[in-house]
Write a protein that binds this DNA or RNA. Structure first.
Lengths: 144, 144
DNA sequence: CCCAATCCTGACTGAAACAGTAGTGTTTGG
DNA sequence: CCAAACACTACTGTTTCAGTCAGGATTGGG
């Protein structure tokens, strides 16, 4: 339930990769410049994305990153969780288990759980394919 | 989009107040003990809740706090925003305006906005009245 | 072969936010 | 008058955030 710059940058990078499918591996530097993401920070993000199996890396000169799956098979939830860890309610259920002893026997917890479920649903139903299409529409629209 | 202990404690306190409607003002100390919330921390939360017009305070001996409106007229969104500030997407739209220059012309932003809207919807549709009812059901159910 | 481009790894850091704590003042019922 | 309660300000230790820094490993091209 905590979204940081990692998710923002990570999603931008993944959308960029998805719209560069044909171009072979894309370097982190290119993405960094085009999307205005700090280069070394972006490199760190790709560690998480690669470990999660969302991108494949090609090392060496002319190397770079590419999507490991089709854009329609990668959703935002996977990206967010790869970068931020499991998407759980930070409230009432932190890293060290339950904060309160009430477990499920707490009406407040039900609200936090509903909130988390709603977030998961939004993120899970948004695929890279959809976002690339949406971005294309935006970009092709006349300014103003 | 950032939920902290303030929201957790605050909601517990508000639920407690809602189930103590008949008892006149309830002291912060009582809530602190019953809900296991650090006393001085809880006091700070009531500052925000009072300024938001969600509770009314009675000073002096035998004083305390009470809901300023009927439980069905107070929703979780109001409580959360009273304690954490406006519920906006922390991603792509921070305190210092837009992080990127893309404004609305960004497919990624659409996802974050959808997420925020989903959260708002969950919180807005959950009232204290509902939560008290839910808590009563939980408490009256036999253990195990 | 060498070098530059590229990914990979780990440590480090300044600033901010989080989760309280401490101390003091003000009001008021008994 | 005094103890109980809210009100306000300031402080603090810890963690997270958002990067930065330094170097190592791998590879294509000249």
């Amino acid at each position: 339930m905590r979204l940081t710059a990692k998710s923002e940058y990570g999603l931008l990078a993944m959308i960029y990769l998805a719209s560069s499918l044909e171009d072979g591996p894309v370097s982190a530097r290119e993405i960094s410049e085009q999307q205005e993401i700090p280069a070394k920070f972006l490199e760190q993000l790709f560690v998480g994305l690669r470990q999660a199996g969302l991108v494949s890396a090609v090392r060496g000169a002319r190397g770079g990153f590419a999507l490991a799956h089709a854009p329609e098979d990668i959703n935002v939830l996977a990206i967010v969780e790869a970068l931020e860890g499991p998407l759980v309610a930070t409230v009432c259920e932190g890293d060290r288990g339950l904060t309160c002893g009430r477990s499920g026997a707490c009406a407040a917890a039900a609200v936090w759980n509903r909130a988390t479920a709603a977030l998961r649903d939004v993120f899970e139903s948004a695929t890279l394919a959809e976002l690339v299409t949406a971005q294309d529409v935006i970009d092709s629209r006349p300014i103003g």
